[in-house]
Nucleic acid binder design. Structure first.
Lengths: 277, 277
DNA sequence: ACCTGAACACCGTTCAAGT
DNA sequence: ACCTGAACACCGTTCAAGT
């Protein structure tokens, strides 16, 4: 059942790489990672496999292109105007604690009260990716796969560059640029991906229950672990349940930002690498 | 050529789940991610597919078991005696800068000079995973896949628990346990995986050149990017080339540790989550 | 309880042939 | 230049049958 063939458009608009990628994203969104096959794709696009292979080298390239497109859209979205909590929908209470709480998060000397400080821009980028992963549950996996296929593929540099510019704007000494940007990128990708995976799993376990209810099921799995083997996890399980995902995510970012600021407050002459530059 | 069937053992020892997992790991190590097929497995174990399916539900479960085994070994290795730089081989110079440099990395009040401070233990766990990924290039990918399949699968809790205990030992207030442990785990997994991917790709590009030479090729790819679109990446590319991977990895960990310490120096009453515990 | 191996359904990819 | 669609090689998984 289901799988309504929306092929009613009757051969309008010729096939193109962009249309194929677009169809691939739709297929991934609706049918999941396993739903993207060349047969499903040919059916949706009303062609044969050969037509697709004329525009795209192979499936990996297609997946990379789909990943690229979604990430690029996420990075572009927060560029004009940062809308950090625009999508917060059900958790509007995230706003008050979103700002200036948690251990004075690293406000740099100069651009502290500016509406778009580097910190704010970093948070905006992070939430852009966070939301993209929530919208496209296959993104984290594909991101990881592409990263291991070709670490200098198009996506990683995109993210790294965007974060890196803000790190530089933060006033971090050049010797620490790579370390600081890496720490941010890895945290953002990892935490956002983890969160997306949590949501996907919870949704799978309990298809149509309320958010609160499935969060219950999620941390329940942690609480079911043997208390002798996993005392720490058991201890944080309850904590996790009570917390808003976005709030938690933001707290982690601010933690890393704090570390970065502490770094460049300490020594200008390149701490970790005495022999560098 | 190659593919020497080491099946000369002549049907000794019966089939078991452990033997299958062991064979799977060997296959993954030698033939890569695509090399693990049920046909290759049956050949190596001299049985039929049915025999394997009696011990293992499906391929995903087999991959999960292989991942579990390798991660468990990595986590167990640093438990008795921390040997942080035991494998450093070519980069012995990592030692002097490994300690107490870079922005005073978070030495907690009490157990500061102890041979096995929580910080040291965290670093040991991190390098255990770092080395495991270097030995098993398929690990990062499988780790990511398992994470998105079932976030509460056996591996994540293992890592989280190990790191978490040290976070607690660090004196972090309970309200920040999850945030601190998350930041560490995500950085460690992300950075170690990225590094492993870099090595794998460089090895693929230049099969048997020296380390220095392939690092060249690696950062070369970054330097080839359009300077107008990627000014930041171009700027750090040279920096990356000159740095030792393990040193860089450690610097990131210390950065996060610094952020964590700053966190709990600021306020004991649970910064991010006013309503928590 | 544990293993065999032929068979099935499905998938990515190719390619001679058309327009 | 762009598309068609039958065909190929390969893979995960099943299952009736053996011991």
């Amino acid at each position: 059942m289901a799988t309504r063939t929306r092929r009613s458009q009757r051969r309008t608009e010729a096939l193109s790489r962009d249309r194929i990628v677009e169809a691939a994203v739709e297929l991934l969104d609706t049918a999941g990672e396993g739903g993207l096959t060349f047969r499903a794709l040919t059916e949706r696009l009303a062609t044969g496999p050969g037509a697709i292979y004329w525009h795209v080298a192979n499936k990996d390239e297609l997946l990379d292109a789909a990943t690229d497109a979604v990430v690029a859209a996420a990075l572009a979205a927060d560029s004009p105007r940062a809308e950090p909590s625009a999508r917060v929908e059900s958790s509007a209470r995230a706003e008050p604690s979103t700002r200036g709480e948690s251990a004075e998060p690293a406000e740099s000397a100069e651009s502290a009260k500016s509406p778009d400080s580097p910190q704010d821009k970093i948070r905006a980028i992070a939430f852009g990716l966070f939301d993209a992963m929530a919208d496209h549950p296959w993104l984290p996996t594909q991101l990881a796969l592409q990263l291991s296929r070709s670490p200098w593929g198009s996506v990683t540099p995109q993210i790294f560059e965007n974060i890196g510019r803000q790190v530089r704007a933060l006033g971090v000494p050049e010797g620490h640029w790579f370390t600081a940007a890496s720490a941010l990128v890895h945290y953002i990708l990892g935490a956002a991906g983890q969160n997306a995976a949590n949501n996907a799993s919870a949704r799978a376990l309990a298809p149509d229950v309320d958010r609160a209810e499935f969060l219950d099921a999620a941390s329940q799995a942690w609480e079911d672990l043997d208390p002798d083997d996993y005392p720490f996890i058991r201890a944080v399980a309850a904590q996790v349940r009570e917390h808003d995902d976005r709030e938690q995510f933001l707290a982690g970012i601010d933690l890393v930002l704090t570390g970065i600021t502490a770094l460049h407050l300490s020594g200008e002459q390149g701490g970790t690498t005495p022999s560098a530059t």
